[in-house]
Design a binder for these strands. Structure first.
Length: 114
DNA sequence: AACATGACAAGTT
DNA sequence: AAACTTGCCATGT
């Protein structure tokens, strides 16, 4: 993918990818949290769009990113739709496509990193 | 080249 | 409280 930079420096993709890679195993975060960490609610949508690209990169645990209510909205974009299995393998319980005790597993980059 | 859409979220009505 | 509107930027058509 061509790395496009905006005038402020790097593209969202690079930033988003960087943050997602930092998500600890067994933890999850939301699009909004990432968007907020990158600045503000710039665009939670774009974060999801960036994940679409991230899903192709095996180095990026895109399965650890869900929407704000812990719903696995993006599982359709996963190869084999194995998002839930990966989460469960990390100790995250998933019930009806939503993460159980999401708030306890929640990892906020703005808080955990700084 | 222009228009529409998308793994969302927060504020407003 | 529920539904509607706005923000944001890259991609696809």
């Amino acid at each position: 993918m061509s790395k496009k930079r905006d005038k402020t420096g790097y593209s969202f993709f690079e930033d988003v990818h960087a943050v997602v890679r930092l998500i600890p195993r067994g933890r999850v975060t939301s699009y909004g949290a990432i968007a907020h960490y990158l600045g503000t609610k710039m665009s939670a949508r774009m974060v999801g769009w960036a994940m679409n690209a991230a899903a192709k990169e095996k180095d990026i645990p895109a399965h650890r990113v869900v929407n704000r209510i812990g719903l696995l909205t993006g599982k359709h974009h996963f190869k084999g739709h194995s998002m839930q299995k990966r989460l469960e393998a990390e100790g995250i319980q998933v019930k009806k496509d939503s993460i159980v005790r999401f708030q306890e597993h929640f990892w906020d980059p703005a808080r955990e990193l700084s």
